[in-house]
Design a protein around this nucleic acid. Sequence first.
DNA 1: CACCAGGCTGTCT
DNA 2: AGACAGCATGGT
Length: 276
Amino acid sequence: MNNIQLKDFDLAKTLQGGQTFRFHNHDKGFIVITQKKIFFVSQENNSLFYDGCEESFVKHYFNLDYPIDEFYKQIQTNALFEDVRERARGIRILRQDVWETILTFLLSQNANMKKIRHNLESLSKKFGTKVHYKGEEFFLTPPLGSLNDQHAIINSSVGYRSQYIYAVNHLLTPLWLQRLQTATYDEAKNRLLDIPGIGPKVAECICLYGLQHYESFPIDVWVKRAVEDLYFKGKEQTIPTIQVFAQKTFGKHRGMVQQYLFEWRRHKPHMNKKNR
DNA sequence: CACCAGGCTGTCT
DNA sequence: AGACAGCATGGT
């Protein structure tokens, strides 16, 4: 088994934090599935073990070269609460394939994490390549252009999102994706908003997880509640208000802060159901 | 049974 | 510009 020495990284929090949904527990670690690869990772203290892929891929995918010290310094001084920092310490923004983030977050709207996972598994079983790994059977994430059977999509339990999946699959091209990757944050977001089924929240997720625009700040119900709880005395705010607040308060790398807030709010004891 | 989930679209003010 | 129902499905 190969291994990388690192610090200030938490594999479990990074994988389980709602950025990707295609991983399975395996042997005290995880089997991670993408469009082109399936690999194993586990962590013990400051060692990251991996198998089935190159070291360069692991470093890239888990964003291990991200300037984390600089980020820690910044959040010391920008009014991010101590317990949020401690709860989410070690999280990184994954560097995922753009198409995979488009597919993933089209399937994420008005669903919970378990449902999103189910949606992706279901589509992968129908359209993804079957692979065998460590004695088990898996299906890679369906690539762009492979989701051509509208009836099969409708019958895959993704609900009303099926129409968006079918449409985006033949609307987008490799060239379009390539241009998206060289666009600025504002350009990229606007182009994504032209796609049916992609609104502000999903566009922000794609910009952050698929294009590494750290100034994007996706606001879902959890992040919204986190900001309202911590900075507005629990009083409800509109999403544009929170967007402006985040820009002013959290700076250029507010995408990371967003990930911290999501992690913190989702695990806040006894506050994750009724009565906020 | 009702309500919610990493929301978006169309419609009506 | 803002409010708001409707949307498919699965979980609680």
